[in-house]
Write a protein that binds this DNA or RNA. Structure first.
Lengths: 226, 226
DNA sequence: TTCCGACATAATATCGACAAAATTATGTTT
DNA sequence: AAACATAATTTTGTCGATATTATGTCGGAA
């Protein structure tokens, strides 16, 4: 008898497929603008059309998938303009959210950050030897950023932040194709952000977060525009 | 041959059902927390389960519907805390969006506002004699607020604003149950907002918008908390 | 009476099949 | 050979049926 919410592999396929599809899009396994044929996905995720279409509908509302009248679904397209817009929005939203979070955050919130950061340091490197993005790293990275805002009192701020983060993450796939040796210390940035946030440094924390975003975005933009 | 996107009553049922469901939730025809049984909806919207579940999935992502593990869907619950949070967020988002819009707005944007406002003035009154909310007014009201931000350069700001607006609108249904004679000039507020926005008044426009939201919210909150 | 468990009922979530539409391939005409 | 019309194929979107899970009811024991 299951102690936790039991995931009946075949029973709640909708949620399961939603999560897998989302992960594959964010990781770049399903590249931007790729046609999402039901038949192909049916095979890939071992389920029927119905749960697939439900998952795709949800992802459409999250701007990760686009749907055309009678022409099915495809992974949402990317562009440098879109990325610039995303980063601009994330700065606005995350700075607001971070301020509120640092005011309200309690011990449990601090512990969540410590834990998430620890897991991120223990995760495999983002890009594996075969130039594919590591799912564990991606998940840990997302969890770390969500943990920073976990104590944010506004459901909507958390939600918007999370959505923008996910939309941004899939741009990182580009960095795995050109094997650029990281000209920056990603782990160090995470550590610095954590320290500033835990210290409730209302000046440094938002500044570091914004720089963190800009660094990633600029790297991607250089590759995209080239 | 259709000039515009043709809605083939039975062909793209998914989109059609999505819009109708959304409209019914916003209008309050489907009240908060109401169970959404597939069988009942199947009958109400004259279609089968599949397009329904797709629409419900999309609405779940928009926070208008909630879904529980194996227990189906229901209309998202409301609470005074949620409304306060919504208003707080709308002020943040809409003020940012409005500033950008007033900087970038062109002639077509201005004409869109004029037209939407005209239609709103010509719409039937919000609440009809039988204490039900008028669909035409609701649609016109939404179109007016969207028109104000139509020239906003950020897709995400427009999207968030629109989503928060929709979530707020369904709180207005409460005002139709207690027949409170409007102690304020709703039409006048809309007119004043339009004038300030068209005049590119960067001081008054955001102030009026915020007051507009507060007025509606306070009216609802008084009724909710009573 | 109140609580617990087995049974009956209802609802959900998924599947496979079908009909409508779009896409590709083919053939015909200029 | 290019362009258009037509036919074949693929793909989408919807339906009805079914198995699984949740809910409600009834009877019996503490």
């Amino acid at each position: 008898m299951p102690l936790q919410t039991h995931s009946n592999d075949k029973l709640d396929a909708a949620l399961s497929v939603y999560e897998k599809l989302k992960a594959d899009i964010i990781a770049g396994a399903l590249p931007p603008d790729q046609k999402l044929k039901i038949e192909v996905l049916r095979d890939r995720y071992a389920c029927s059309g119905s749960p697939l279409r439900e998952a795709l509908s949800r992802l459409t509302a999250e701007s990760l998938v686009s749907q055309e009248n009678q022409r099915g679904f495809r992974v949402a397209a990317i562009s440098s303009d879109d990325l610039r817009e995303l980063i601009r929005m994330r700065k606005l939203i995350d700075v607001m959210a971070l301020n509120e979070t640092m005011q309200q955050g309690d011990a449990a919130w601090e512990e969540g950050i410590i834990l998430a950061h620890h897991r991120l340091t223990r995760a495999p490197s983002e890009i594996s030897r075969d130039n594919r993005r590591d799912m564990t790293w991606i998940r840990s990275h997302g969890e770390f950023h969500r943990a920073l805002l976990a104590a944010c009192p506004s459901y909507y701020l958390r939600n918007f932040s999370s959505q923008l983060f996910d939309s941004c993450e899939r741009y990182r796939e580009i960095l795995s194709r050109v094997d650029v040796l990281y000209p920056r210390d990603l782990a160090g940035e995470h550590k610095a952000i954590m320290d500033a946030v835990l210290a409730r440094d209302f000046d440094r924390a938002p500044k570091l977060i914004c720089e963190h975003m800009d660094n990633s975005a600029n790297l991607v933009l250089r590759t995209l525009d080239a």
